[in-house]
Write a protein that binds this DNA or RNA. Structure first.
Lengths: 213, 213
DNA sequence: CAAGAATTGACCGACCCGGTCAATGAATGC
DNA sequence: GCATTCATTGACCGGGTCGGTCAATTCTTG
């Protein structure tokens, strides 16, 4: 927000941002304490409030940062060129995975913002997500080959199912997190996607490699 | 826990239990205040602590109550007689739906217990759920016709996917909850199940009504 | 060295909440 | 009708948390 913060060295700014993501990813809004954030960032609390007007503005800054980062990294040129629904999906999933692996706290942070409830900031988050989703969906479906879908199969429903699936998936992994085993996870996930493709697309548009189970 | 509480009239006991479910379903453990619970139940706080040693014991009482209720209502005689995986699934889903509709707070409460984190009671809940899941899964798969599944299709994986799916589903409904529209939801859900059945079972065991999309 | 900017962390006040307890009321037994 | 026990109340306490402040200190720079 303030010019103070933007004027910082990249390293320091990044340290503070990461600290914020870390603490806000491990606690909900109210319980994420500014004391801890400052400590994690290696600065005093006073300084933190020297950069940000208050807790809320820090939080919103981080949320905005996340949003921009995701959009920048996921919706790139290649993204806009893909016209096959499932390829697009695969591409964005892979991109997202890369991000999560590079920034471990980001996933949790994002999920918390998404599922935030009864917090001072919740209404705002909810509104933003609803808008964001609509825009993204519209953008996706505007340049995607919807004609490949079977009669009576709504691409929107398919997407929803997918979101639910990956959601539960992530939760599962997060919860009992037995050290990821990314290979295994990716394989299983891909299997389900393949199934969905066969189910949703007209047979004409199946890929060769999907014909066996 | 105490005999005091058990000696109460059914009506009063139920009032307190419901108040507990309500408040614990709307707030996480720490933020669910005993003041509010007592107020909702129409009794004084002192009395609440007259019945329950402390907050924790009240909470665990409710959790146990939920557990018993679910088991009693879902795993009945008919449940034990169904040997088809998907029929079993449908039956338990339907039963659960009935419960959620009758006791609106129960679903949220259950979900909170399931996803509880960083609370005093979380370790206990986690442990209990892990045990419970194992027992349930074993019991399910012990009397289910696993031979109907395709070669290389793990019933366990299918079940997992289903759990993820319904999870995301419920969240979606809960979150944007535009007044349920149960009919629509059930229809869509059933559609996915049908797809899964075709996918998981050998063709031999498909049902007539599933052959079209 | 002086003026301003950056930085510190002790401190404040507000809020929340579990649990207690002296006091009151209701019920029961004699 | 009195005494004893049980049920019930709600004001109160103490402990904890946490956002935000500010006087004091250190650092930077011209």
């Amino acid at each position: 927000m303030g010019e103070k913060f933007e004027g910082l060295s990249k390293e320091k700014r990044q340290r503070i941002i990461n600290a914020g993501f870390e603490v806000f990813s491990q606690n909900d809004y109210r319980r994420a304490s500014t004391d801890v954030i400052a400590a994690r960032a290696g600065i005093s609390k006073g300084l933190l409030f020297y950069y940000f007007r208050n807790k809320k503005s820090l939080y919103l800054y981080l949320f905005d940062y996340l949003k921009k980062m995701l959009i920048k990294l996921v919706v790139d040129k290649k993204f806009m060129e893909i016209t096959d629904f499932f390829e697009l999906l695969e591409y964005s999933t892979q991109k997202k995975m890369e991000i999560w692996q590079k920034h471990p706290y980001l996933l949790d942070f994002a999920m918390r913002t998404y599922f935030s409830e009864k917090e001072e900031v919740s209404p705002f988050l909810k509104k933003t997500y609803k808008e964001l989703e609509e825009v993204l969906y519209r953008q996706c479906f505007s340049h995607v080959d919807t004609y490949k879908f079977r009669e009576g199969c709504d691409p929107f429903h398919v997407l929803k199912l997918l979101v639910w699936m990956s959601d539960g998936y992530l939760r599962e992994v997060n919860m009992w997190g037995n050290g990821w085993d990314m290979e295994e996870i990716k394989k299983e996930y891909d299997g389900w996607i393949r199934m969905l493709r066969r189910e949703a697309y007209k047979e004409l548009y199946w890929r060769e490699e999907d014909k066996w189970v």
